[in-house]
Structure formats: structure tokens, C-alpha cells
Design a protein around this nucleic acid. Structure first.
Lengths: 344, 344
DNA sequence: TTGAAAGCGGTACCAT
DNA sequence: ATGGTACCGCTTTCAA
């Protein structure tokens, strides 16, 4: 550039970002005093007039402290990093998530979601580590490897928590036992006299971490009852459902756990169109207890999933941060119960 | 504490977080050299053997650079901050969002979502400003005030972009003209001969920013046609829908735009249960083109919304960052078209 | 080709 | 009750 080099060229118009030094200058005090006042440092007494002058100066300049500088000096941050899940999440999850964030904030943590679409597990971990979070809470399928956990801990993370089904070496694993969902649904079907039970397994990628355990749970439920379980691959598309419905009679199933309410609705519609009577011929059970299930005819039986309240998880994170050496408390964060309606 | 003061007590077990100085020491070079090697600084030539020693040392220590220190020194970051929306978002939005994040990363930005549940507009803005983001993109109803924008810009944000319906003083406003959705749906109803048209207005808080403009759009569509629009408040609950259906005949409506597919399904079910024939007596149109709409009987007519591709928005953000003084380009990011099925 | 050192914005100890 | 100052980890001249 041909511009004189003394021109910063960084903030072309408008003055520079105010720092605590600017506040100090305007208030006629030292930077230390500014820090004391703005942080209400109890160990130091500052006279009321001085406090006021500092506050007014900060206000006038629109001063906002620089989080990076602060945490650099402090040697740690209170940032909890949440890798954003790749898969589409349901309303249940969203509510839980909001609650969790809110609770963490109450505990004085800064919650930040960091998306890592299109990054490999390890480079993602490295990217997260650059932010020096005090804790990382991976909720979904974000494949966090043992290697990744090691990177994070080496860079100062005091707690790495996975919330899911896979247990990762070195991380606190909070299981959400998806198996229970399949178990509850299938047990219900068995109890109501069904013997040959289909279990829908979505073919969409990213759902495997839920569908696998649910299928396993279904298998547990039939063990020793004489009933059998048949996995049913299904894409969330009308054609896929119709194809499945077309060969329904050949499958000879009298009950089906459809993974969740959406797949259940898809399948039930296809079954009805194919002339299969629900629940007379085949009982259908979904999961998630969506409102839409109540609108179907017959009304859809479902498994209602109650996730642990966000506050509980937030406290668990806080404890893990304060006592990193404590043994990973493996809690189960889900409770499942069947809501029987008309489709089963 | 009675512990000797020389004990850091910060990392009780396990060694300290490695810094570039540690890498330098291990590699037998200076910190400067480490920086040069790890950043591939082209202005400086470092011998290949040295490069290797540095890389190996970094690898061995598990060194990850400290983002805060880096951006503090640099005087700026490439963080784009996205306040997380409070309302539950649909699958359309999620897809768009992922694409947007991906595109921003490709442009070398660090995308971070910051939740602000339970914070007032201005304190939220201050919290965001502490992170010194280079840009803030507020997508939802996160009420960003003119005051908030001012705070952010004062603290170095080169672009503040709102994506929504409200225009905020000082921010680049990218309108997503929700009105078009209501306009398209209603125009379709009018063209197919409907005269008294209901427009569902969800009572759920947080949806007002969508429902208001959609209602206005509906009003535009009937202007001068002789048709009329009747707002229909509705909660997303079965009882509310039933109550509305019970007084349907009294309302004397022959068409309804039901806000979106979910509300449409809710309402259509209630209408059918109340004996109102769809579409013979009343036509129903939803929006979002969810798969579930195709499963209903009659199949639900809908408005398909195509959002701008995330890449386009990412480039727009990039341009705004590089030329903060350029006039806010107000682009429309949505295209709406009616998909007629059987319910209209 | 490499090293020494200044400085980014805060905080907290130690003086005064 | 305040101010001076060292330092957190990293980048980037400037010298050698």
C-alpha cells in the first residue's frame, strides 16, 4: 500500500476500541484502580467518589473488558464449550439444551457452541483446545476420540464430558441409555400379546448412535419371552415406507417399534394405505411423544422420554471442573415410559 | 491455604499446559522461530532441519496455540459470533445454518454460537462484545437494539448483521421477507376461488416476528380482490384447535393459511373431526413443505421456502467485514412458492 | 537463518 | 486509598 505506515489502517473511521487505560486516563486514576472498581475487588477499598468517576468514565467511553486479555492473565477461563451436533435435533433436545445453558450461566460459566462441520475428530479437538475451555461437553455424535480427549486435557480442559452412548477413553461419560427406549416399547408390545416385533432402523446417517442401542434394547426385552425381533431398515421417505409396507404381510409382524413418532407416522400411513389394519393386525409404537402423534388416527402410542433437567447436568459439569480427579460419575440421564394410546 | 505459596495449585495433577516457550526449549530454538515454523511465515526462511525439530517438539508436547493470546497480540480476531436463537427452529433453518457455518469456516472465520437465554438485550450485547468478535450475525428474534449494535461496534465488531424482519439501527439488515410466504399462500387461495380467508396466528411467544409479517402479506394478497382476511389466534395444542374448529361454521371461512405445516396439520385434524370437509368446504394451506404434509389425507398444500444458500450469506458477511463502511446491502434471502396438493 | 525484546489488555502483588 | 509494575502466551519488527 502507498499509505504512510504510521496509519494504523485498522479502524478506518471511528476511534479505537477503548481499553482500561483509556478509562483510567479519563477518570484520572491508574489502570489498577479501574480494575479494582470494575471488578468490585473486595480485598481493596476504593473511595466512593473514585468509584463513581471510574464508572462514569467507563460508561462514557462504552468500555467493555476484553475477555481474551482477562483469561490470558488469569491463566484459565470459565468457558464451557459445546460442540454443535451435526444431526437435526428434536424439540425435546432443544428444551433440555436451553435449560442446560441457562443453568451453566447461573453457575457463572460462559457457554459457547462451536460448530465443527467438516472437520475430522482430531482437528476439531485441536480447534476447540485453542479456545482453552475449562470444560467440553459433547452431546451428540460428534466423534470425540480418546486422542481428542487427551489433546483437550493437555491444553487445560478440566472436564471432558460426553453425553451419548459411546464411552470415550478419558472422558466422563454420561450415558443416555437409548436402549431403554427400545426396551420399554418392545416390552409393552410383548405384554400386550405381540410375538413377532419389527424394529425400525433409520438408514439416515447420524442416527445410528440412537438406533443401534434402541434395537439392542428391543432384543433385551424379548429375551426369554419367545417373541422375536426383526430389524427394519427404513429411509425417511414415502417410497421407502411404501416399499416396506408392500412386503409387510410376507414379514408376518404383529407389532412394530418405529424408532420415533415421525418414522411411526410415516410407516403407519404406508401400512394403512397398503390395507394393513392398525392396531388390529399390527400394533405401532413410536417415541418422543410429539403432539403430532395425538393427531393421527388411530392415536399413536409412544415412549415418552424425560431427559434429566439441565440444572442437574450443569451441576455435574461444575463438580467435574472443581474436582477433575474425582471418578467419572456415570449417571443415567434419561427415563422412558410408555404412553399407550390407540395404535397398540 | 497452608500450602507453600510456590505451589501453583492450578493443575493439581499432570503437568502444566505447554506453551510455545516449552516447544522452543525442547527444540533448542527461540520462541520466535517456533512461531515462524508453526505459522509457515513466508517472509522468513527457516532451514528444514530446524523446522523438523520444532514440529517434532510441538508434536511431542501436544502443543496447541492459545487463541486468546494470539488474537490479543494481533489486535483482532476472526471470530464470527452467532447468538443462538431462543425459539425452536425447523429443519429448514438447521440445514441453512450448517451450510452457513461451513461456508464461513472456508473463509477462515471461527464460528461461535453464544447463547444468551435470560439476558436482557443490552447485557447480552455486552457479553458478546467481551469476546471481541469481528462480526455478529443475529438470526432470530434475539432482540438486538440500536444501543446493542453501538456497543458491539465500539468494541471492534466490523459488521453487525441482523437476519430477520426488524431493521435495527446501525446494523446491516438482511430481510427474510416472511410476508411473501403469507402473500403466496393467500394469493393461491384467492386464485382458486376462495373469498373469506382465515390466517392462523400462533399465540406462542417468539413466533410473532414470523406470524405478523405473514399476516400482513396475506392482507396484501387480498387487497383489491374483494376477498377478506380473518386472523385466527391459535395455540399449538389440541384443545385450542378444537375450540377454533367448533366455531368454524360461524366464522364462515372457505380458505385458511395455517401459518405452517404443523399448525395446518393440527387445524386440519380438528376441522375434520368437527365435520368440516377439506378442501370442499374449506381449503387449507401450510408452509415449510414438511414430509409430514404429504402423509396427511388430503395431502397438504404448502408454501415451499427456499432460503438463500449459506455460502451467499457467508460471502456477504465477509464483504461487510472487509468493507465496514460500504452501504448495507439489503438483500432478500428467501423465495417462496406454492406447492399445491390436495387440501386446496 | 535465528534471537532478543516490545507490546497486546487485563490483574494482582507490593509499595507508598 | 491508590499507583507502579510484572506477567499471562503469542507475534513481529529489528539486529546480529
Amino acid at each position: 500500500m502507498s499509505q504512510p505506515t504510521e496509519q494504523p489502517s485498522e479502524r478506518p473511521a471511528g476511534r479505537a476500541v477503548p481499553t482500561s487505560a483509556d478509562v483510567a486516563r479519563l477518570a484520572g486514576v491508574s489502570r489498577a484502580t479501574v480494575s479494582y472498581v470494575l471488578n468490585n475487588t473486595s480485598a481493596v477499598r476504593i473511595s466512593e467518589p473514585t468509584r463513581r468517576r471510574v464508572r462514569e468514565a467507563a460508561e462514557e467511553l462504552g468500555y467493555v473488558p476484553h475477555a481474551a486479555a482477562r483469561s490470558l492473565r488469569a491463566g484459565h477461563s470459565r468457558m464451557v464449550l459445546l460442540p454443535t451436533p451435526h444431526v437435526q435435533v428434536g424439540p425435546l433436545y432443544s428444551q433440555f439444551f436451553n435449560e442446560f445453558q441457562w443453568a451453566l450461566r447461573r453457575l457463572d460459566y460462559t457457554v459457547v457452541q462451536y460448530g465443527s462441520v467438516g472437520l475430522e475428530a482430531e482437528e476439531a479437538a485441536r480447534a476447540w483446545a485453542e479456545l482453552r475451555p475449562v470444560a467440553v461437553v459433547a452431546l451428540g455424535e460428534s466423534r470425540l476420540t480418546g486422542q481428542g480427549v487427551e489433546i483437550l486435557k493437555r491444553s487445560g480442559a478440566r472436564a471432558v464430558i460426553t453425553l451419548g452412548t459411546e464411552k470415550v477413553e478419558g472422558a466422563h461419560a454420561l450415558v443416555m441409555d437409548q436402549g431403554r427406549v427400545g426396551e420399554a416399547a418392545t416390552a409393552h408390545l410383548v405384554e400386550t400379546g405381540r410375538r413377532r416385533i419389527g424394529v425400525v432402523v433409520p438408514e439416515e446417517p447420524g442416527l445410528a448412535m440412537f438406533s443401534g442401542p434402541r434395537l439392542e434394547g428391543a432384543r433385551r426385552a424379548v429375551a426369554g419371552t419367545g417373541a422375536t425381533v426383526v430389524p427394519l431398515p427404513l429411509r425417511y421417505e414415502e417410497e421407502s415406507a411404501n416399499a416396506l409396507a408392500a412386503r409387510w404381510r410376507a414379514l408376518d409382524l404383529d407389532g412394530v417399534f418405529a424408532y420415533n413418532d415421525e418414522y411411526a407416522m410415516l410407516l403407519m400411513r404406508a401400512l394403512q394405505d397398503a390395507g394393513v389394519a392398525v392396531p388390529a393386525e399390527t400394533a405401532v409404537v413410536g417415541a418422543d411423544d410429539l403432539l403430532l402423534g395425538r393427531l393421527l388416527r388411530p392415536r399413536l402410542s409412544t415412549v415418552r422420554i424425560d431427559m434429566v433437567i439441565g440444572r442437574e447436568l450443569a451441576e455435574l459439569v461444575d463438580r467435574a471442573v472443581r474436582e477433575p480427579e474425582a471418578p467419572p460419575r456415570t449417571s443415567d440421564l434419561m427415563a422412558s415410559r410408555v404412553v399407550r394410546r390407540e395404535s397398540s
